[in-house]
């Protein structure tokens, strides 16, 4: 009994050290984010200093300046491209997932494999023709071009995710509804969708994250009209180390929507990132 007690005590003490270690690593990973937010509330004279300043007189000046610097257009473009592309993805993915999950078509596996294989196609392999074609049809610097590309980029993920959620819907429920004379449309909108609403939200979250954060297409295909938030941030690069506080405020504001959404939906995040593989 005494031996067991010491064992428990040692483990508890070891556990305490492990807890400290866990907190330390967690804070270490969070530190750059903390510093970004902190710097956002500094004056430029407090931002780049040796030694770095932890204490200073906070100011909201930088956030105010952002909108004078024209941040509004970039944020509106990002908001529009993200929202519309996510809606389009869901509109295309839900019926497709229905055909692959509830009443599987022939060669469902092939179709699923095809969808996921397009995610392995490196983006650089298609950027050249996309750029040239966009130039020829006058779609350069057009937010609709980004919307089409973001839809294509997120559709395979959404099909996989929605299929995994739809597979959990008990078929008896759908059959019962059908017996009661529900049409396919009624079956989908009134019976199935309410049951997979959390899955729909998780899928939308993943699409929003990837579309909001996308940079490669945006930097190559847009200029002044359709430029999105990542391009606004990159605009600070030319001025080198001079505007760290301004940059940090922009970076904080740009990251805020996705960070908050991700924090609120941690469980759905895991499932979404694994494309539905992890329940």
């Amino acid at each position: 009994m005494a031996a067991l007690d010491t064992a428990v005590q040692t483990r508890r003490r070891g556990g305490g050290a492990l807890t400290v270690l866990t907190w330390f690593i967690g804070l270490l990973f969070f530190f750059p984010v903390f510093w970004m937010v902190l710097t956002a509330f500094k004056r430029e004279t407090d931002a780049a200093t040796d030694p770095p300043k932890l204490f200073f007189e906070p100011t909201l000046e930088q956030f105010g300046n952002l909108f004078d610097a024209g941040a509004g257009t970039y944020f509106l473009n990002s908001l529009f491209a993200t929202t519309v592309s996510t809606l389009l993805v869901l509109l295309l993915a839900v019926p497709a997932a229905y055909a692959l999950a509830i009443r599987p078509v022939k060669r469902t596996k092939d179709v699923l494999f095809f969808f996921i294989s397009t995610k392995m196609l490196p983006v650089v392999a298609v950027i050249v023709p996309i750029y040239v074609i966009a130039g020829q049809i006058g779609a350069l610097d057009n937010v609709w071009m980004l919307i089409v590309l973001y839809t294509a980029m997120n559709l395979p993920i959404a099909v996989w995710m929605m299929r995994s959620f739809l597979q959990e819907v008990p078929t008896e429920v759908l059959e019962a509804a059908q017996m009661d004379g529900a049409t396919l449309r009624q079956n989908i909108t009134q019976v199935m969708l309410p049951m997979v609403a959390p899955g729909l939200a998780a899928t939308a979250l993943i699409c929003v994250i990837f579309a909001w954060n996308e940079f490669f297409f945006a930097v190559n295909l847009t200029a002044s009209q359709a430029a999105t938030v990542p391009l606004f941030l990159v605009g600070f690069m030319t001025s080198e180390g001079l505007y760290w506080a301004q940059l940090s405020a922009a970076a904080t504001l740009a990251s805020l929507p996705v960070v908050l959404a991700g924090w609120a939906a941690q469980k759905q995040l895991v499932r979404g990132l694994s494309m539905g593989a992890i329940k």
Binding site: G26, F30, F215, P230, A250, V259, G262, W263, L269
Partner: peptide, 17 residues
């Protein structure tokens, strides 16, 4: 929650920081 934050921060923002 702290730990997952770097993944949620916009990659361009993270790289600039």
């Amino acid at each position: 929650t702290l730990m997952i934050t770097p993944f949620l921060v916009m990659p361009v923002a993270g790289a600039l920081i």
